[in-house]
């Protein structure tokens, strides 16, 4: 019986990577559909919102065509998909610049922020989770619990504002606004916003990591390792951290959504010229093509990172077949 099943999982595992990617592509397609639907199915007429109630019928028709809102809904949909696949996301109403270029120009700060936050979050949550798992009762855990509740109830943008007030304005250890895309220079702009997001992300990740370390501790190979007398660092990395990290990364993929959401707020607070700032500006100026394009990119980014994190998990922990 175990023999037969091992053979079966082998075949399945070889195709697992292909499967993960295929599902990612499929979900991107659905995500594109949602981005398309927001403009069409939300209450209100975008054309009248731009032109006002007194618009002439010919102006309305022209604007409809410009927004791609003319004709049958299926035709609109196919046209939207066809253009999107070729990288054409339409043209901004307010600036006349292609939406794809707007996104290309503003995506670097956002991606750097998300990457920086993700790395910092892992650096903090892994030791924190280990400490919590190895001493589940006690002062440390109690303090953590209280701090976690407090930081989760804190509005992220307010936390950012306080950090800006203290670190940038009062103590001058961080820049007040802006971004640079040169490598070491970017870090001076990134560390504070990334830390602010971490304040809300780390409690969640540390909790997940703690839980999975606790599960790992129950496994037989831990006992075997202790009996064999494996060295300390080796024990921590190979026997505790590596097998436990997969669920944490899985959650990170899941949390990417919230991470991107948080980056919208934090970019606004720290006046970073990222895609979130662009989105907010497009929303307040009713620049529909830009809103639609950015929604699409955000959705695809979430799918992309989820897919990547699934692939990483597959590499890190062969036990995690994916049917967790």
């Amino acid at each position: 019986m175990p023999r037969r099943r091992a053979g079966f999982t082998d075949v399945w595992r070889r195709h697992r990577a292909v499967q993960i990617v295929a599902r990612g592509v499929a979900v991107s397609f659905i995500v594109a559909t949602v981005a398309f639907s927001v403009l069409r199915f939300a209450p209100g007429d975008p054309v009248l919102a731009i032109l006002g109630d007194q618009a002439t019928p010919s102006a309305v028709t022209a604007m409809r065509a410009k927004l791609g809102l003319d004709g049958n809904i299926f035709v609109q949909y196919l046209r939207f998909l066809g253009h999107a696949v070729r990288g054409d996301l339409g043209t901004s109403i307010t600036s006349g610049v292609p939406v794809a270029r707007i996104i290309g120009d503003s995506i670097a700060p956002t991606l750097s922020l998300v990457a920086m936050t993700a790395i910092l979050a892992l650096i903090f949550s892994v030791p924190l989770g280990l400490r919590l798992a190895l001493a589940p009762e006690g002062l440390f855990s109690k303090v953590f619990r209280v701090a976690a509740s407090l930081s989760l109830a804190m509005p992220g943008f307010f936390l950012g504002l306080l950090a800006l007030l203290l670190f940038a304005i009062r103590w001058g250890v961080a820049p007040v606004a802006g971004f640079t895309s040169t490598f070491p220079g970017a870090l001076t702009y990134l560390w504070l916003p990334a830390l602010v997001i971490c304040a809300q992300l780390v409690p969640i990740l540390a909790r997940v990591f703690r839980a999975s370390v606790l599960r790992t501790l129950d496994e037989e190979f831990i006992e075997a390792a202790i009996v064999r007398g494996v060295s300390r660092p080796r024990f921590y990395w190979h026997y505790l951290i590596r097998p436990s990290i997969a669920p944490t990364i899985a959650l990170l993929g899941y949390i990417t959504g919230q991470l991107l959401g948080a980056s919208v707020m934090i970019e606004m607070v720290f006046s970073m010229p990222g895609i979130g700032t662009r989105l907010v500006r497009a929303v307040t100026t009713r620049d529909y093509p830009t809103v639609q394009g950015i929604l699409l990119v955000f959705g695809v980014l979430v799918v992309l990172i989820t897919t990547l994190s699934e692939l990483v998990i597959k590499r890190l922990d062969p036990r995690a077949g994916g049917d967790r």
Partner: peptide, 19 residues
């Protein structure tokens, strides 16, 4: 599932753009 795939605040911003 596809609505839940989006960052909540981002999709909400999209709706506000229209309404």
């Amino acid at each position: 599932d596809s609505i839940n795939a989006f960052p909540f605040i981002v999709l909400a911003l999209g709706v506000v753009a229209v309404v």
